[in-house]
Structures are given as C-alpha cells and as structure tokens.
Amino acid sequence: MPIQRREVVAALGSTLAVGLAGCTVLGDGGNGDAGPEISGETLTLTTTTSTYDTGLLDELNAPFQERYGVTVDAVGQGTGAALETGRNGDSDVVMVHARRLEDEFVADGYGVNRRNVMFNDFVVVGPADDPASIAGSGGVTGAVDAVAESESTFVSRGDDSGTHAKELEVWEAAGLDVADFGEWYVDGGDGMGAILVQADQQGGYTLADRGTYLSMRDEIDLEIHVEGPVEGGPELLANPYGIVAVNPAVHDHVAYDLAMAYIGYVTSVEGQEIVERYTIDGEQLFFSQALAEEPNFEQYVPEGWEGASDAE
C-alpha cells in the first residue's frame, strides 16, 4: 500500500492553520485599539457580583478607559474571593462591601488607601404572599426570627461574600445561631443573582442587596418585606462599598498608579455623578458616599482604630 505522507501532513497543517487563524484574530483585537496616553496597560479590578451584575461598572469604566487609554478588566467575584485575589497580587484594585473584611485586608498590609465609594442597603425579600408574615414583625431581627420560628425556606449566599457576612450579622443580632438551623436554611453557595433565582424557585426568603434585587425584579416574583435604611429601614441593613488599592510594597508588579487613578476617578465629582445617575427602571441603585466637605478620617483606617496614641 502507498504511503501517503503528504495527505496526513496536509491534514495536520490545516488543523494548525485553524488554530493560528484564531491567534491572528485575537492578536488584531489586542493591538488594534492602542489608547491615547498610557496605551496597552491593563487595570485589573476585582469586585463583588452586585456591582458587576447591576451593570454599574460598565457605566463607570467606559469614560475612564476613554480618558486614560487603559483597559479595565473587571472580574465579578464574591467579596471574600475578590479580596483573596488582591492578596495574591492578581488584581490591582478591589471594590467590595464588607467593612470588617476590608479592614482585615488593610490591617494585614495587602491594601492601602481605602476610600468610601457609595452605599445602598440590604432588603429581606420573599414570596409575595409572605408565608411567614415577616412584614409586620418588627424590624429585621423580628423578621428573621419569624422566618426561623415558622421554619420557612431561607436561601443563604453561603459564599463568604459581603452579603453573606451581613446575613450572619443579622442572625447574630436576632440572637440566633445558624449552626442550629434545620433543613429550611439552604446554603445556596452562589452569586446574588443566582441566589435570588433559587429563592424565587423554592418560594423562600433571602437577604439581598437592593441594587441586584432591583436589577432582577422583572425576572422573579419575590417582593421586599423588610426595607433597608434607604427606605427608612434599620441601620443594620446599610450596605457601604469601599475601594482599596493593592499595596505595591507587598506586590511590586501591581499597577498601583493606575489603581490610584481609578480610585481618584471613582471618588471624583464625575465618578460620583455617574453612581448617582445610574438607574434601572427609574430606580436609583447606588448612592454617592465619597464626596464630603467635612473630613472623614474613619474611611482610611480600620474601624475603631485609636489613632497614633499607641503607635510608639
């Protein structure tokens, strides 16, 4: 039988050609859009699913990219994962919403120059008919008490996110221990959007940030039963977002200058106006918190920091 080497080589060649064609396509995309000033540089932002899923970041990042010619790679993770990525030096700046975890991040030396960015609040959502009648049960602690009492389904984020941290705080404030809960307490282990879908399908309650809830209201049948401070609810449900640069002394390759430019932009009048203007179906999702005439030292240091008195 003849040995048809050429055919086989041709076949291998075309396989390669397909692969290389893919390379070329992506290469073009990468090199084609050289920016005006700091062209080609990339800023990696790890952030929470709530800022990512609501679409706010697209609004914020487009003008920044245009002005600085820098690509912002926004990676949506839970607060815990976003900070961990920063700890590993794989992101340059972190925007999250769990003050205790941010403080740890700064106190451990991984983050520098923390600023307040914006806030909204958490709400307790559940089926429209409110089977555990939590609506009039006296604040958020009364509400979660009613859920636990009636053993109604409650879907927890269970993913070490800022929302999960807040949820645990709420149970604690109600004097309940999550470890004692039965099967009605579901550990969903996913992002906010996915948990809202899960709660919707299981007819359960959950704690959600108002932004993600509003952005998904059309897809689900859940309703707000306990309002947060934005609508006059308890301060316990406040949801402040902070932004922190990764410490270049710990990870010398991080784009610290870009990170600070980004923090400066997000906390500037222009950035804060974008935050204030961002609405879905006419509802404002986030509220500006970075601009204040009065000094706000508390945002730069871990909560409860005593100042320089014990530094020496």
């Binding site: 396989t15 390669l16 397909v18 692969g19 893919g22 390379c23 396509v25 992506l26 995309g29």
Partner: peptide
C-alpha cells in the same frame, strides 16, 4: 471568537 480561539488553539496544541 474567544470561545473558538481558546478551544481551537488548546485542541490544536493538545493534538500535537
């Protein structure tokens, strides 16, 4: 494009 680029290059390299 990203799907095809990633999968085709990975499979081409894997095949080689």
């Amino acid at each position: 494009r990203v799907s095809l680029y990633v999968s085709l290059v990975a499979v081409a390299l894997s095949t080689l």
